[in-house]
Structure formats: C-alpha cells, structure tokens
C-alpha cells in the first residue's frame, strides 16, 4: 500500500533554531528516494519530520504540510502515534529490543495494535515479515533467541522486519547501513530493492554510491553557510543528479569537491 508523499514548504525547528527551511518535494510511491548531503544539513531532521519523530526531541516542532495521500500529517487532530504506524522508520544503528526474542521483536509493533491475534496468524506474520526482510532462512531455527545475539547486519534486517510487520505505507531509513560492514550493506541494499515494489521508501545516506545504486530519485540537501538553515538544493531523477546535476553545489558535492 505504497503512498505518495507531498511536502509543502516545510520548516523544521529546534526551539528557536530553524534547522531546515522551505522544503517542497513530491516523493513517489513504489520507488526509492535517497536524501544526500553533507553532515548537519538537515537530511535526518527532514526524514524524521515525515513520521513526526522530529517532535520526540523536546522543543522541536515543524511548520508547513506533509501530505500522505492528501492527508496532512500535521493537521490538528492528527495523532502522531497513528502517523508512525503508517510511516515506519529504520534507524542508523540497529536497535532490536534487547529483552525480547527475535519472534517478539518482529511482532512488537503488531501487538500494540491488535488486541488478540491467533497464534497461527502471528506465526504467519512473523514468517512473512522475516522473509520480506531476507532474514527468515538465517533465523528460522532460533526465533526464541534474543535479537541482540544476531550480527549487526542481521539485527538491522530484523528491525526492517519489525517495521514492515505493521504494514506501513512508507518506510523511512536513516543511514541504515552506516554501522554495517560491506557484506551486510549489500544485503540491506538488495532488500531495499525488493521492498520498493510494496512500499514508498525514503533513505538518508552519506554514501553516494549507495544512493546511486538503490534510489530512483535523489534529493540533495545543503547549508548555504554555517549557522544558516539547511535546504533542499536539488531534487531529480537519480540518474540526472549523478550524471548531469542542475546546480553547481550538487555537482561539487557529488564530485567530492567538498562535504
């Protein structure tokens, strides 16, 4: 149930500090959108504002609109809890719940929502989610073991399984591979490619090769100067961004001249 996201003139604040200014973009369904840019330019802040995780930080708030299927996430009366169920998130460092088994980690989000689910349905869901995250074959014999016993890459795929188990419309990924080795990174990138048939995926990455490999669209964020808010400089087809960028700043960044 991939959904289109329309962002309209979105400003993100931490208290009085304007972190990201005036972002307007349309994120396509069933595609991977990569957000690139130098450190501190507000990519992650922007990503977190797409499922209202931004406001978890005390004093942080947002101005503007984020429309998912023409419904504004920031409209009065919208419950952030409901938003986060529709728009899932995978974090920079894998964070399975340490006291839960692999099985319980996968159904952690589902259990919040449904009062009673048949054991067999639950088992099916765990299998489907773990298969969806390309992890099933590796863990199917030790579902009752703690999730913290897995390798970093496996933990991250477990977190992806946990996220897709609640059947979100959108999956946000905040540098999902930055804490992983190259082989695990490859596994995650393959997974992202598989997932885009069903979900709208937005991924923040520092790795430009990764953006080029996995994404269909790419947005480049940058600061005009230190102390200034970050902004979306250019947003286009990934191919275009990497072969023939429209802005000088984008070209400089991609060719490694700064950042």
């Amino acid at each position: 149930m991939a959904k289109r996201i329309d962002v309209k003139d979105l400003d993100m604040y931490y208290g009085d500090f304007l972190a990201v200014k005036g972002v307007t973009m349309t994120i396509e369904p069933r595609a991977v959108t990569a957000l690139i840019g130098p450190s501190g330019c507000g990519k992650s802040t922007f990503l977190r504002s797409l499922n209202r995780m931004h406001e978890v930080i005390p004093g942080a708030y947002v101005k503007g609109e984020v429309l998912v299927d023409d419904q504004n996430l920031y409209a009065p009366g919208v419950d952030p809890v409901g938003v986060r169920r529709r728009v899932g998130m995978v974090f920079q460092r894998p964070n399975p719940f340490p006291t839960m088994s692999i099985y319980d980690n996968v159904v952690a989000g589902v259990k919040l929502n449904s009062k009673r689910m048949k054991k067999s349905d639950m088992d099916d869901l765990v299998e489907a989610s773990l298969k969806g995250a390309n992890l099933w074959s590796e863990v199917k014999d030790r579902l009752a073991k703690p999730g913290s016993g897995l390798s970093g890459g496996q933990q991250q795929r477990l977190c992806i399984a946990r996220t897709i188990a609640v059947k979100p419309d959108v999956v946000l990924m905040d540098e999902p591979c930055s804490a992983l080795d190259p082989i695990s990174t490859l596994a995650i990138e393959d997974l992202i490619n598989d997932l885009k048939s069903e979900y709208t995926i937005v991924i923040v990455t520092h790795n430009m090769q990764q953006a080029a490999r996995v994404s269909d669209m790419t947005g480049f964020f940058n600061l005009e100067a230190t102390g200034q808010p970050g902004r979306l400089v250019e947003y286009d087809d990934t191919q275009k961004i990497f072969s023939n960028p429209g802005q000088k700043a984008t070209e400089d960044y991609i060719s490694g001249r700064f950042g």
Partner: peptide, 24 residues
C-alpha cells in the same frame, strides 16, 4: 534508540515505557 524504535512502531508513551523503559 530503544525508545525511538518503540515510538517509530506507533507506540503511545505508555506502550513505549512498557516496551523499552521498564524491561531495561
């Protein structure tokens, strides 16, 4: 990380506390 993992799954504050804070 664990608190945010829970919130990102769509947990309310109390559900987050039960999933992440109390077990810890």
């Amino acid at each position: 990380l664990h608190e945010e993992a829970s919130l990102a799954l769509g947990a309310t504050r109390w559900e987050m506390i039960r999933q992440a804070v109390l077990p810890f």
